[in-house]
Nucleic acid binder design. Sequence first.
RNA 1: UGGGCCGUCGCCAAGCGGUAAGGCACUGGGUUUUGAUCCCAGCAUUCGCAGGUUCGAAUCCUGCCGGCCCAGCCA
Length: 562
Amino acid sequence: MSSTDSQAKGSFIHRIIEKDLETNKYGGHVATRFPPEPNGYLHIGHAKSICLNFGIARQFNGHCNLRFDDTNPEKEDIEYTQAIQTDVEWLGFEWDKLCHASDYFEQLYQYALELIQQGKAYVDSLSAAEITEYRGTLTSPGKDSPYRRRTIEENLDLFQRMRSGEFEDGAHILRAKIDMASPNLVMRDPPMYRIRHAQHHHTGDAWCIYPLYDYTHCISDALEGITHSLCTTEFEVRRPLYNWFLDNLPVPCHPQQIEFGRLNFEYTVVSKRKLAQLVDIGIVDGWDDPRMPTLSGMRRRGYTPASIIEFSNRIGITKNDGTVEMSLLESCIRDDLNQNAPRRMAVLRPLKVIIENYPDDAEESLTLANHPNRPELGDRTLPFTREVYIDQTDFAENPPPKFKRLVPGGEVRLRYGYVIKCKEVVKNETGEIEKLICTYDSDTLGKKPEGRKVKGVIHWVPAQYAVNAEVRLYDRLFSIPEPSASGDFLDYINPRSLVTLNNCKLEPSLSEPFTSGVQFEREGYFCLDKGHSSENGLVFNRTVQLRDEWEKIQQKQAARGT
RNA sequence: UGGGCCGUCGCCAAGCGGUAAGGCACUGGGUUUUGAUCCCAGCAUUCGCAGGUUCGAAUCCUGCCGGCCCAGCCA
C-alpha cells in the first residue's frame, strides 16, 4: 500500500466511522450510498464521491447502494440512469442494491400524512412569489403564512386531494411547520411536496405530487439503513432539517450526515448544468466528448479507471474548498500508462525522408520491444525501408540552441534503426520543405557510430507500410484556471482545445486490433476512438502528452528572447 | 448583513499539546537508442493575523482578517 493509499483511507470521515464502529453506534455496521440525480452524466467530481462511498463500504466490510435521487420528473431521464450505471461499473464498483428514491414515494406519502397528523406539516396556498416574500431575508425573519393555522383535518383533506390530482400545478404545497424566524433559512417552513402533473421516468403517471430533496433524502437513507450519509459541504446548512424529519418520524434508523468538500478542478467546469450547456450549444460534441470532465468523456479520452481512482486517493477528503491542478490528474494517468501502455511509433506531421544509399529493393525486419522496461510485454517487427516518414518538428533548417534532432548536414538516429545524415533539403515552388535526402550509416544498427556521438533519436515509420490515421490532440477546454469564478464561463472556451491532424502515419502493427492505451513514442499516450473512424483512416485520441523537457527549454528561450 | 463552514509550501494534504509527513509542481545532478521512464538531491525555523494559557501551541482560549455556502415549489 502506498502512502497516498493510506492518506485516502484515513480522512476525518474514516475516523468518525472507526469511532462509531468502536462504540457500536450502528451495531457495528457501515452502510453508505451514492445518490446521483439522473439529470446528467457523471463527472470527475462524482468520481470523488463514488470512490469515497464505495471505498468506505469496501474498506469496512459494509454496503453501498446506488440510489437515483429521482424526485424531479421534469429534469430526469432514463438515459441518465443507464449512463450512470455504466460509469460506476466502469470504475470497478459494485453496488449492494440499486435503488430509486421514487420507489419510496408511497412510504414518503404515508410519513407526510403522519407529520400532518402531528400538526407538523401544513398545506400552504400562497403563490411561489408570496412564499419567497414571506420567507424573509438573510437578516430579517420571515412571517407566517396565513394558511399556517389550517386544522389538521383541513390539511389532511387538501393533501389527499393534492395527491388525487384535483389541483393545478402550483396551487398548493405541503410545508413542514418549523420556524419562520429561524436564522437558518432552510428551517423556515421548508416545502415538502409540490404538485407536478408530469410523467416520471420510473413511476410513470402514478403521481402528480412529488416530494422535494430535503424531505426525501433523509428518509430514503433511513429506509435503506444507511449509517453514514456523505455529501458535499453545500448541504451542510440542511443538516438540521435532515435531522428534524428523522427526529419527527417513526423511521427505522437515524443516519448521520457528514459533509466533505466538493472537488473543483482547474481549466474546466464541474457542474451538470454547465456541462449540459456545453453539450446543448454544441461547443463539444456530446457528454462523452474527450474534452469533457465527464467519466464517459474521460473514458473516450483514454483515462483508465485505475488512474481516476488513484486521483481520488491523492486529492484526499477534507472540508476545504480548493481547486486541484490539472497536473495531478495528468500525473496519475501517466503513471498508469507509462507502466502498462505498449509503445508504438506514429508520425503525426509527416515529412518524407529518402535514404539514398539504402538499396531501393532492400528491406530489413527490425525487432522492437513493446516496452523499454518490461521485456515480458514482448516485441513486434517493423520493416526498415529506403523511404520513411519522420515528424516535421524533428527537422530544422535553422535550429534553435540545444536542438538535438535532424539538421542539414547533421546526424540523428532513427529509433531502433540506423543513424542517418541529412544531405539535402528539397523544397517546392512555394518554398515549403517537400522531402529530405539523407544517407545512412550501415554500421549503426544496434550499435553506436564510430568516433562520434549522435545525441538525437527520433521516431519514424516506413513509408510504404504506413497506416493512415487521424489523430486528435486535446487540450484544456477553457483558457483560464477557474472559468466558473470569472463571469460567464462560456467567454473562456479555449479555441485550441481540439486540434485534428488528418494525415498521420502509423506503424503497421497499429492496424491490428487492440484495446488498451498505447504510447506513441516521444509524443504521448493515445487510444483508439472506437466507432469514430473517419475517411482519414483510424481515429486516435491523445490522452495526455509525455512530459516534455524540450518544450520547457523552448519556452525559456522564448521568454528570454522577449 | 443573520446563520453555517473553512483557512498548514505554487496546488492537494498529513498533523489532534512535545517541537512541520507525503504527493503534484518546480529546481539541480546521474542513467538512458523515447529531450519519456528511472535514480539522487533541493524545496514551510513555520502553520491567515494578533494576543493569551502552558515548561512547551499548527494543535487549547479570545479577538480580528480572508474565503465558501444558504433567501428554487432544483438536487
